[in-house]
């Protein structure tokens, strides 16, 4: 499968996603600029972390108006895998591909550290290689990671098993129901604040994120039904 990593102005984890997919997992991956209009030829798309448009106005709020967005939305509608981490997650909520919003951390401060997570749903394209309710550790690095949605939406997310990752011990940002990552109802769009791409090599001290990419590379060509 061929994977696109989108480069928005101010993306800065684009290299990390590219290296995790290409160098570590041996996947077929290419950068695609936000100027482009098409993702024809790609089987999956990834939105990296960083500070698209400097987080001005609101994290992800301007990136959703870029040329490439309609192509990303089209892929989501076709059931192809769409993944966003950190700023990528923020952009996916701003674009309406995922419900809810990411608010400023309760601490009002940027926080970078490894946090324990629970894999709440291992029945997704992205998590099939994790055990049910497995405890893993992934780095976070954000100032706006406090997940918010109204009660009805939160209940619906839980009922549909759309909550994929939850903060397991401490809640580092004030996210409601300790939510760290969610999918859309169909299960082909995943957004998460933690950075699995930072945890794929033993030399960097953590490989808990590797199975997310391996899951996707195994399952990705399977189109998710309506």
């Amino acid at each position: 499968m061929r994977i696109a990593v989108i480069v928005f102005p101010g993306s800065n984890c684009d290299v990390d996603l590219y290296e995790a997919l290409g160098t570590v997992c041996g996947a077929d991956v290419a950068y695609v600029s936000h100027h482009e209009h098409s993702l024809v030829g790609f089987d999956a798309v990834m939105l990296p972390g960083g500070f698209s448009y400097g987080d001005y106005l609101r994290a992800g709020a301007i990136a959703r108006f870029t040329n490439i967005m309609p192509a990303i939305i089209k892929m989501a509608e076709e059931g192809k895998p769409v993944f966003g981490t950190c700023n990528g997650f923020q952009i996916l909520t701003e674009a309406g591909l995922l419900p809810g919003a990411l608010k400023r951390n309760d601490s009002q401060r940027f926080v970078c550290k490894a946090v324990p997570l629970e894999v709440v749903n291992n029945q997704t394209l992205f998590t099939s290689r994790y055990r049910p309710h497995e405890r893993i550790s992934l780095p976070i690095a954000h100032a706006d990671g406090s997940f918010y949605a109204d009660q009805k939406t939160l209940d619906r997310l839980e009922a549909n098993h759309q909550v994929v990752f939850r903060y397991a011990e401490e809640n580092p940002n004030g996210s409601l129901r300790n939510i760290a990552g969610i999918t859309n109802q169909r299960g082909n769009v995943l957004g998460m604040m933690p950075h699995p791409e930072r945890a794929v090599e033993a030399i960097l001290g953590n490989t808990d994120g590797l199975r997310l990419f391996k899951s996707l590379l195994t399952n990705g060509s399977v189109k998710v039904g309506e």
Partner: peptide
């Protein structure tokens, strides 16, 4: 750590040893 956790110490995924040690260490890809 209450200071340096406000700094992203891992972006570019090459940080072998981050803040709080004697020296920071990066791998050269």
């Amino acid at each position: 750590s209450s200071f340096y956790q406000q700094y992203d110490s891992q972006v570019r995924t090459s940080t072998v040893v981050g803040p709080g040690s004697d020296a920071g260490v990066l791998r050269v890809r």
